[in-house]
Every structure is written in structure tokens, then in C-alpha cells.
Design a binder for these strands. Structure first.
Lengths: 216, 216
DNA sequence: AGATTTACATACATGACTGTATGTAAAAGT
DNA sequence: ACTTTTACATACAGTCATGTATGTAAATCT
């Protein structure tokens, strides 16, 4: 019952966040009470309410504690399409390797209702998504300039398509909790998806070498 | 207070389902009480509990009352890729036109926690998805045989990709409740997505007419 | 060293929400 | 015509979760 030092307090706070994430991902956000979390963290509700105003506040902390999957990695890679693929594959690997990340996205995509106090979270997610789309669009533009993808396609639209694809992929990957049917296919899915994008490049090279196109 | 005839009872049941769907889509499943639904349907909880065992039972009824978006339409269309596009576009149109359909999918994709009694629903959704994937894979196979898409790609994997794309599209479409940013782009997104698939066909034709490939 | 704040644990008040039990009048069966 | 269901409305009991108020001992401040 001795009062904790500042560092110890930070630790219990961190533990509460971790346990909240776990319980959320198992029982869903609405279904877990503050006491469920407290019990798992081996504290009382008093501790939880001291660190967080309410459940949605705690939920925000859980999110803030988790890194975003939707960001480009491998900045040294020079091929834009290859870099995008590595980023997506890396996201999958993080999902597999980092249990906390997997739990958080499990909550976000299957175990949470974006209503009331949680609506801002959805908007925030969409904002992050739009950010990702813009960065991917840049990649696609340079790839287009390098003649790797069809100059006819709208790169911004293409980036949105990729975003849709990846959101769906994440959702289905997380749905396959038994890791039986979908998860093994996820990585080849990404590979083939991006191979198609540059498939044009191969054919276009063959074509343009024999018959240059006129600008439209 | 007069007892209702069988037909009238069926009507109140239907009304309860409709109101449940509306309230679910606005407040989320966990956040709505049986009385919320009863009030909206202008009955008491007694009526609701007479027709449905509990909330999850009512939720199943709401789902059963809604047609699936994930099915091929336009069976007369002979071009497989065109048929797929028409099906996806049709799904979007139904989402826009049929308020009940939109509400149900709003619930499924943003306002529901697939936990406990609701876990079977997720599995059922995935099953329906796998069914859709198989049908789309058939379309892709015939398209491939007709030389419309790259013979190198795995059509089953391609169908899963399309499923991912569409799931993500649905989710993002539904997130844009203001119908401002994403929804206007959804239809062109589908169009461009499927145009890319047959882009290979065009180039391949050009190439093969000038320089026939050898079989590998 | 004393005063003050911190980091909780404990206790309390309150309010949903659920499920069931009971009542009831009319419809449906015979 | 009489009995039995039906289709609810009403009433009741009980659980559970929330938020706050209070207590407290030690850490931190001055």
C-alpha cells in the first residue's frame, strides 16, 4: 500500500494500457468493464480512473501507444514499386511479430464500435489513411515517370485503390484468427498485386520499342 | 390493447427489425438497448422479447432481412470482366439507393463488435466472402482463357485481391458519412481497377500481332 | 522537518439494462 | 360456443457498470 514513485506510477500506467489492449482485443471494447482491465493489470478501478478519465480515454491511450502500420518504410529503396511492396510486407510482418500491434488492429477492425466518443477515432483513422494515400500516390507518380506503370491511369486513384486493397487485406487477415485459410495467402497477394502494376511496364517496353505512342 | 391477427403480428415484427437496423446503424449495437428499439418501433420491450430471444437474435434477423451485396449480378453479360464491374457498381448503387442495405452494412463494418455471440456472424461473413471469391475466380479464369488478362497471374489469388479491394472500398465508402471525400471516387475506382486487369490484354494483343510469343 | 501532493485502494450512490413472470383480451382452433 | 393460444403490455427482480467521494501512506516539495 506504499505510495509509488513517479517511475513506478508510469509503469502501472503502461501496464494498464497493455492489459486494456489485450482485454479489448479479446472481449471487445463495449464488453469490457473498467474492472476487467483493472483485474488483469492487478490493480483496482481506482488506479485506472486515476490515470484515465473513462474507457474512451483509455482507448485513445491504447491507440497512441501503438505505431501506425500505414506508413512507408525502407526509405533507401530506390524503386518506388519495390519500396511500396516492402512497406506492405513489412506491415504484415509487424502484425505477425508484434502482439501489441496485432491486438490494437484487431480491436480497430473487428472489436470496436465507432460511435459517440469513438467517432473521432474513425475520422482520425481516415485522415491517416488519406495521408498514406498521398504518399503512395507520390510513389506511383515517380514510377509512372520512370515508365513502370501505365501513363493512362490516374495515380491518385490508384493510390486509393491500393489503400482499399490493404484495408481489406488487413481486415481479412485479422479475421482469420486460426491463421488457417487467409493469412498464408496474404504475402503472395501483396506480391502479385504489385507485380500486376508493373506488368504494363514490361509490355509497354516491348510495344513502345516497336511502335512509339503519340502524346494525348 | 386488442390482440393482433397473424398478419398484423408479422408487420410489427418487421417494423421491429427495421427500427433495430436504424438504431443499430446510428448508435451501434452494444450501445442500443432493447427499449431503444422498442421505443422507435412504438411498442414495448414485451413485444420485442416476444419476437426475439435477445439482442443478438434480433441482430441475426436484421442481417437475414438484408440481401447480400457480395454476389454476381447481370448474368446475361457475356464479357466476364465487364460482368464483374457491373456487379460491383451495382453493389455500390444498391448501397446508395436502399437505405436498409446501407444501414446494415454500416453496422457490420463500423458499428458492431464481433465477439461472443457475434463471432459466428463474422465467420458467416467470411464464408460468404469465400463463396464470392470462388465465383469471381471463375470469371477471371474464363477471362484469362479469352486472353483478356495476363496468363501469368494466379486467378484465385486475383479473386482474393478483388475481394480485399472491395471490402476496403465498402468500409471506406461507409466511413465517408458526409458523402464528401471518398464516395464520389468509389465508382471511378472500380472502373479503373478493372480496366487495369484487362490492360494486359490490349498490350498483349498489340505485341502478339507484331511479335507472337512462344509458349512457356 | 513539516506541509503538500501523489498514487492509488476502498466505499458508496446511482442508474441502466436484462430477462422473466404475470396479466389480458382477442384471435384462432374445434 | 367454448377452449386454447397468441401477441403483446406491464410489473418485478437482479445484476452489473459507472463515476465520484473519501481515506491514506508515502513520495516530493520547500
Amino acid at each position: 500500500m506504499a505510495r509509488k514513485t513517479k517511475a513506478e506510477a508510469a509503469l502501472t500506467r503502461q501496464k494498464i494500457v497493455q492489459c486494456a489492449r489485450q482485454v479489448f482485443s479479446q472481449a471487445g471494447v463495449s464488453n469490457t468493464s473498467m474492472e476487467d482491465i483493472a483485474r488483469k493489470a492487478k490493480v483496482t478501478r481506482g488506479a485506472v480512473y486515476w490515470h484515465f478519465r473513462n474507457k474512451s480515454d483509455l482507448f485513445m491511450a491504447v491507440r497512441a501507444d501503438t505505431g501506425s502500420l500505414l506508413q512507408l518504410s525502407h526509405p533507401t529503396e530506390k524503386s518506388p514499386l519495390r519500396r511500396l511492396e516492402l512497406s506492405l510486407q513489412n506491415a504484415l510482418q509487424r502484425l505477425t511479430g508484434e502482439s501489441g500491434t496485432q491486438e490494437t488492429y484487431q480491436v480497430i477492425l473487428w472489436k470496436c464500435e465507432f460511435v459517440g466518443e469513438f467517432s473521432p477515432v474513425r475520422d482520425d483513422l481516415m485522415l491517416g489513411g488519406e495521408n498514406f494515400v498521398q504518399e503512395v500516390a507520390k510513389l506511383y507518380r515517380t514510377a509512372q515517370q520512370e515508365g513502370q506503370i501505365d501513363p493512362a491511369v490516374d495515380t491518385l486513384l490508384l493510390a486509393r485503390e491500393t489503400f482499399c486493397f490493404f484495408v481489406g487485406l488487413l481486415k481479412l487477415w485479422l479475421a482469420d484468427t486460426a491463421a488457417q485459410s487467409f493469412r498464408p495467402q496474404a504475402s503472395p497477394l501483396i506480391t502479385q498485386y504489385l507485380q500486376q502494376k508493373q506488368a504494363w511496364g514490361k509490355h509497354a517496353l516491348t510495344v513502345s520499342r516497336q511502335k512509339p505512342k503519340s502524346n494525348s
